[in-house]
Write a protein that binds this DNA or RNA. Structure first.
Lengths: 341, 341
DNA sequence: TTGAAAGCGCTAACAT
DNA sequence: ATGTTAGCGCTTTCAA
């Protein structure tokens, strides 16, 4: 029941302080004494109250995580990586699911996160404002960002511009000229979010190839059905149909491939598709992709954050995660069409 | 910074007790006094320490959630439902990702959950043992289970046997005789898990239709690639091919449909497929399914659990969630094949 | 309506 | 190597 460390101490015939030392392993305790305390604790089923401990140590062994989606593969996989890394070190994870544009955003940053409940915070794809970040840092709560470079705090991300360029160049290298980009929703023309950067990379590659006039971009909800809808729309007119699609993420790419097949377009023979993420399903769909390894990103974020928690604040910088091109059958060399000769 | 309620009190010219009453809204405080306290708190950016409050009230406003997968749609959607419901009531969610067979299981139940960190625990698809459940209940931590009936605690679940029977009967009603079940991994013959119950429902329906001798069941990893692999295997031999497949979940069903199309089997004309879950992608794939509404399950779990937290412990019982058959094009009436005439 | 005082369960000096 | 003491920041009697 409500057994406290005082009960353990009494049972072992020592003081609370000694019981605390024996149980936590900090400070000198005679081996025999320690054993008696440990036994006593086990006998009455004692488990220390983390609240009480936190109150005095100032450490909670708890990390706050903010994420926009859970039921999207990429984000779910990051979460799994974080959880695994945290659990192994005796930390737990408190999760805030903050969809883009959520009215709860202020409450999460101002109330939930700004209490002394967390040793650190991981923001995934959320792009905290300078004010939001500053508030936490001033409270002494280190923060790290995954997937979105945030001014003033350490960020883990792939170089999205470069990844998009890589993907587009891969299609160009196969001989494609008519390459369409199906990306996420963009706000404004100088959008610096992940979606904006991927569009930028596409543009850079197209312009560099002298195809600045051939660029075509559409926006899709970042999901398989989103890609399906956008793909259906983009591919329906045979005369305007691209020969290759660079999708801003694998879920969209998969949706596009499904739409193409339903329309009767052979993939990859008549349409090359490339995505970004390295989705678990990519192999099944023979999808060519730029691999991001989200689980690894989650684990790295934990490593970096806990370093900042226990030691010096980690340097503020953008850490580039590896992004690897994985070629599969979904991208084939462009074929010379009869009508193009 | 480390502003405490004493700072607020000093600034407002009242005692800590009054400041506490003013901020929490409990107890008598003159309106003018309250306003001064609230202003003072805002001015110095005071946010109460939940640890300190928990220590004295015994309530943490924090719920522990145990889940086997995050990056599977069904589980992710439940989590989103839970988070939404919790956030609205000022509660946090601490998440433990416990894959089946994980070596961390004991640590999570004995160490992480059994501390006074949680007002309640939600176990999703985890089936705590009587001992694990009893331990928490003895500590006064109410627990609720989603998706798996657990002895001694309240459970939210669809009637999996009935859902499976419903699915199978739907295929039977379309005239199918050669119906295969592609389910999850089963351990032993009287497996009482979700997978086992769905197999049982399939058997009941088949036997009731006089097709006990025609039953065929395969096991698959519960994912789209898992369904793809199992489907590829099950459908490769044209002479043994079923005319309909009842898949134990939508992800498997989708995998089976993709495999079928790749093999050249027309869906739904030559193969009817039905799943369970009500996946977001079901509509896109025209998948007939038994809908489970996981977000709703998550929300209901929160409602029920918080009732138990604040009032009488809720009655121990199994609450049946609605499961609804959604018919789409992926199940078509069985056709009389030439070779069957 | 407000204040003083006690104490939630633990850890960390400081003594011994 | 162990015990004593003093809080961590808050809420809650109890008195005024």
């Amino acid at each position: 029941m409500g057994s406290a460390i005082a009960d353990v101490a009494a049972r072992a015939g020592v003081s609370k302080a000694t019981a605390s030392r024996a149980l936590s392993g900090k400070g000198y305790v005679a081996t025999a004494t320690r054993q008696r305390v440990v036994d006593a604790a086990k006998e009455i089923g004692f488990v220390a109250s983390p609240n009480a401990a936190s109150l005095v140590t100032g450490r909670t062994k708890n990390i706050g995580v903010v994420i926009p989606f859970i039921s999207h593969w990429f984000f779910g996989a990051i979460l799994e990586g974080i959880e695994e890394a945290l659990l192994g070190r005796g930390y737990d994870m408190t999760l805030y699911n903050l969809r883009p544009g959520s009215v709860d955003r202020d409450r999460v940053f101002d109330f939930f996160l700004a209490r002394k409940r967390f040793d650190g915070v991981i923001a995934i794809g959320v792009e905290p404002t300078a004010e939001e970040a500053g508030r936490l840092l001033r409270l002494g709560i280190p923060m790290i960002s995954i997937g979105a470079p945030v001014a003033g705090i350490r960020s883990l991300t792939i170089d999205d511009v470069r990844a998009a360029r890589l993907a587009t160049e891969h299609l160009l290298g196969l001989g494609h000229r008519n390459i369409m980009h199906i990306g996420g929703v963009i706000t404004g023309d100088d959008d610096q979010t992940v979606n904006g950067q991927r569009l930028t990379g596409y543009r850079q590659a197209m312009v560099a190839a002298g195809l600045g006039g051939e660029m075509r971009a559409a926006q899709a909800v970042m999901s398989v059905p989103g890609g399906y809808d956008a793909g259906t729309h983009a591919l329906s007119d045979p005369t305007l149909r691209p020969t290759a699609v660079f999708a801003a993420c694998d879920e969209v790419a998969i949706g596009v491939m499904i739409a193409a097949r339903r329309i009767g377009i052979r993939v990859p023979d008549d349409l090359s598709v490339i995505g970004i993420d390295g989705h678990d399903y990519a192999e099944m769909f023979s999808l060519t992709t730029i691999e991001q390894k989200p689980r690894l990103q989650g684990q790295s974020a934990v490593t970096d954050l806990l370093e900042a928690v226990s030691g010096e604040p980690a340097a503020v910088e953008v850490v580039e995660m590896p992004a690897r091109l994985v070629v599969r059958a979904s991208t084939a060399p462009a074929r010379i069409r009869a009508d193009a000769v």
